[in-house]
Design a binder for these strands. Sequence first.
RNA 1: GCGCCUGUAGCUCAGUUGGAUAGAGCAACGGACUUCUAAUCCGUAGGCCGGGGGUUCGAAUCCCUCCAGGCGCGCCA
Length: 588
Amino acid sequence: MSIEILKTHVLDRLAEAGRRTFGQAAEGVEIVFPPDLQLGHFAVGCFPLSKQLRKSPAEIAKTLAAAISADEVIESAAAAGPYINFRLANRVFFGGVIDAILAAGDRYGDSPVGRNRRVMVEYLSPNTNKPLHLGHLRNAALGISVSRMLEATGHRLVKSILINDRGVHICKSMLAWERFGNGATPASEGVKGDHFVGKWYVRYAIESEKDPSLEKSIQDMLKRWEEGDPKTIELWKRMNQWVYDGFAETYRRFGMDFDVFYYESDTYKLGKDVIGEGMGKGVFARDERGNTVYHLPEKQFGLEKNGASKKVTVLRPDGTSLYITQDIGTAILKVTQHNLDSSIYVVGSEQEHHFKCLFSMLGALGYAWASNCYHLSYGMVYLPEGKMKSREGKVVDADDLIAGMVELAEEEIRRRDPEHKLSDGEIRQRAAVIGTGAVKYYLLRVRPTQSINFDPAESISFDGFTGPYCQYAYARIFGILEKAGQRGMEGGSADLALLGNIEELLLLKMLIQFPEEVASGVAEYNPSRVAVHVFNTAKAFNQFYNKHAVLQAGSSELTAARLALIRATAAVLKRGLNLLGIDVLENM
RNA sequence: GCGCCUGUAGCUCAGUUGGAUAGAGCAACGGACUUCUAAUCCGUAGGCCGGGGGUUCGAAUCCCUCCAGGCGCGCCA
């Protein structure tokens, strides 16, 4: 009997009690959990019935509760003020939930709401002139998690990345390397490619302070690039490849994967063409300075102070493209190449205006799918000393952060292995899972709209509300299950009527609520829903674990029942963490 | 000036489709490892849910208003 059937049964009995006592079915109420599970397993607030029956909720609750007799599901019904608390038979309450979870396995909590909808999630969008930083990691953690949650709801997913590989900022690292690099390469320096190129980007900033003429050289280089000068293109390709090699390593470490790579250099021309067509249709106009502009609709964007319409420039007077130019091209490519129903952009909140403009423009160009584009906006990540600024070196480097966390995890693992039973390889593998899990969890545990104040001390904690805490609960369960297997305690059907103490009830409640939290998380594009719930589940398990023994439960029947409960718990923890892009470990 | 976001315990945050005494982590203090992994658990302390007004039987949650902070507001990305 699934949890839905149990709820339906209680509601049916309630409706029937209403017919007998008030002459009409008691309907329109909702099953909730009592604040304290000692009060009962299910509860119903009688507020909605108050109006139609013209009696106080408390009076209704009292009458209905008295009219409900026990059956094979309901053990008792008791009024408590305006609420009716239902105590259910443990056999069906625990049995219904646990059986459903064990049957669904890793797919418990999945739903088919998004079946067959093709959706693209674009995340990361790095520049090829510097390595990734903490802000990128928040972006990636969100992108990975939202992708998995969409898959869990039946969407057909295409994960994409947009690489900003052209423009004046890219030329800066190229010029610095050309002038001062003396042929050095990432290999010759023993430096990861993206860090190597990033070093030249910083070098440019330093040199251009001393020598303002470099600005001119940059413009010349950009012009040569746009004209397709073979030497410049070759340099560009070579340095970009260094960066891609470096990025690939970071993608691997953090678990990012992409089905499609878009490059601004491939899409800006399409954007220009589309703008040209749009000119003909009157979507765009030329302003007094020669810019090609899009006038933003007053209804959505309002007007300038002087009453003129607001506008956004899509091409410079010389016809060169801007950020939004290539975005138009990329948006169209995405939909046409992949036949998308919707397109999600995981990009920071500072670009909300940009995407509003872009989507408005696409609509004006006649693309009906523009209304299915969604900007998944997330708050900034601040450092203790303020905003991150890569040009000033005020960043938390992504590779450094991950490596630091993995190292801390490794220290902790070694501390717990004084007899050196673990191989170095095993330790490294565990440390990677724990370290990256901690980073991801730290970035996903708050809702996306919240800005994050990066607190180094808090971020490196493995205690409390963290990824490792959740992973640890899973490992503890695995340890018990493993021992149970060794001792031949596995198998056979358990009598779940033996369960029912408060810790078991609280744990079961978490398992019941998991699908609702996943559903809310997907609807809101908010992985923190899942992150918080996984933590609460782990906490409920730890509370149970500290109070009750599984293997030494006192009887083999009780052991079997508790094994079923924790097996279901493990499935939820694993699936929950998996939806966050975090792996579990069987031993920690 | 306008738009979006944020304001809940000392700190960082859940809870925001209105419902039973507002939750957690960290920090502080006091406890629990001869027993399934102490990356754990238990206890103590800590709150005019930014201020004010309104709607409602009922508001952290909805509406109005004010205050504070962040981000953004064409020719950067």
